[in-house]
Structure formats: structure tokens, C-alpha cells
């Protein structure tokens, strides 16, 4: 239902992008920007992996952890949701070296953004797990399943379907947040755009292309997540 306007938008922007990229004025910027785009994609993918791992750990620790482990998880989630992504990025970039931990900017970017999105993701996972009906837990107790097993085999697969749409939003947030890494000297799409802007002063062309590239990437994420959702929901629908 919502896919149609999306597809229309995608087609319009794609044709607009094609038209724009065929102008000579735009063409000279495209190779450099695409190189930057590659870095952006790398950080998004790396950040997504970190985010998923941290979200799972965070959510499990917050829901089922004992005392101190739970507090750590709660503190992690609150701190990373409560402060800006940029502050976290700068903190890891500028402050960690004072403690003797020197990471290269790329690692800082992936870790910082992954931790940030992971904190939001932990709450998403918690919500999704809580949305699984209680009867499922009770049934697995009745079947004499250990807690970990019922979580892994019964609860999480069902929660998985519920958490796909919010994760799609989070991945788009992550993609948009990667623009921040240009401020810690990584030559991603945004950084390249600024660099070229300072050299050529062709501001309108450069920033328009950049916006279109980001849009294309986020439409890609949306379409990918929709597809995943259809696949994941199919098995569940049959089960009920």
C-alpha cells in the first residue's frame, strides 16, 4: 500500500538523477563522490553489524541479566540514547587517546555509530520480545524447555517479524548518521562533498548529487527491509 508512492518517488528521483548526471557540470564530481559513497556504505554495514550485536546483548542483559549485568545494560542504553551521536563520536575520537587507546577514525566511526544505534535497537528488541504473547512462554515451560532454548527457538523467531520495520527505520537513521563521520576526518560522501565544494565552489551541483545519493541508499534500505519482512512474515502466518 505504501510501496506504490515509494516506487513512484524512487522512479522520479532515479530519472532526475540520470538526467542530472548526464550534464557535464555534474559529471566531473561523480567519481569522487561515488568513492566517498563507498566509504559511507562500508560504515553503514559495519555499524549495522555492531548495532545488531550490541542491541541483542543489551536487550538480553536488560531483560534477563542478573544485578550488575543488568545495571550495565541499562546504563549503556540510557547513556547512548540520552546523548547526541556527534558527542559520542567526538568523545571516542578525542578522549579515548588520553586513556591510551588510539583507534583509527574508521574504527571509531563504526564503533560509535554502532553503539549509538545499538542502544536504540536494544529497546526495539525488548519491545518486540515483550509483544510475543505470554502463552508462548507458558507453552514452552509446559514442554519443559529450558529458558534459553525457548527464547532461542520460540520467542525470538516470533519477535523477529515484529522488529523488522523498526530496524528498517534504525538502519536509515544509521545511514543518515554516517554523515557525521565527515567531522572526524573520514573521507565519506559528505567529506568529499565539502572538499570539492571548497575547491570548485560548485555548491549547488555537489550538494544536490549528495542528497540524491543518500536518498537512493535509503530507498534501497527501505525496499530491502520490506522484502525481508514479506519473507519473514510468511512462515509465521502459516504457523498461526
Amino acid at each position: 500500500m505504501q510501496l506504490r508512492p515509494l516506487a513512484v518517488c524512487a522512479i522520479i528521483f532515479f530519472t532526475a538523477g540520470l538526467a542530472i548526471s548526464s550534464f557535464a557540470g555534474f559529471r566531473e564530481f561523480i567519481p569522487g563522490l561515488l568513492e566517498g559513497g563507498l566509504i559511507t556504505i562500508q560504515i553503514t554495514l559495519g555499524g549495522a553489524v555492531v548495532a545488531i550485536v550490541m542491541a541483542l546483548l543489551g536487550a538480553m542483559a536488560k531483560m534477563y541479566g542478573i544485578g550488575p549485568i543488568r545495571w550495565i545494560a541499562v546504563a549503556y542504553i540510557e547513556v547512548f540514547r540520552g546523548t547526541s551521536a556527534l558527542v559520542q563520536l567526538f568523545w571516542l575520537f578525542f578522549v579515548l587517546p588520553h586513556f591510551g587507546i588510539v583507534l583509527d577514525p574508521m574504527t571509531v566511526a563504526i564503533v560509535a555509530l554502532g553503539l549509538n544505534i545499538g542502544a536504540y535497537g536494544a529497546e526495539v528488541i525488548r519491545g518486540a520480545v515483550n509483544s510475543v504473547p505470554r502463552g508462548q512462554w507458558e507453552a514452552s515451560v509446559a514442554l519443559n524447555m529450558p529458558r534459553a532454548l525457548s527464547l532461542r527457538r520460540i520467542i525470538l523467531p516470533q519477535a523477529f517479524v515484529a522488529m523488522i520495520p523498526p530496524w528498517g527505520n534504525l538502519f536509515i537513521e544509521l545511514l543518515k548518521a554516517t554523515a557525521l563521520v565527515s567531522l572526524i576526518t573520514i573521507s565519506d560522501l559528505t567529506f568529499r562533498a565539502q572538499q570539492m565544494n571548497q575547491i570548485t565552489f560548485r555548491t549547488v551541483e555537489i550538494f544536490t548529487i549528495v542528497l540524491i545519493v543518500y536518498l537512493a541508499l535509503s530507498v534501497l534500505i527501505t525496499v530491502g527491509m520490506r522484502t525481508l519482512e514479506t519473507f519473514a512474515a510468511r512462515g509465521i502466518a502459516r504457523g498461526r
Binding site: 508512492p5 513512484v8 518517488c9 536509515i172 554516517t178 559528505t190 565539502q194 550538494f207 542528497l211 543518500y214
Partner: peptide, 29 residues
């Protein structure tokens, strides 16, 4: 309604940092 929806989706799915640069650097042009 359709152009508004397209505009809203466009703004929503591009980074706010680029939009800040856009307003700051492109509007003067």
C-alpha cells in the same frame, strides 16, 4: 498531496547534516 509526500520522504531520508550544509552553502548561491 503527492508532491508534499515526496518532499517529506526526501527530507526524511537524507542526513540532516547535508541539509544544514545545503541551507548554509547553497542558499547564498
Amino acid at each position: 498531496s503527492i508532491p508534499t509526500a515526496g518532499f517529506v520522504e526526501f527530507i526524511r531520508s537524507t542526513p540532516v547534516l547535508i541539509q544544514i550544509f545545503f541551507v548554509f552553502f547553497v542558499f547564498p548561491e
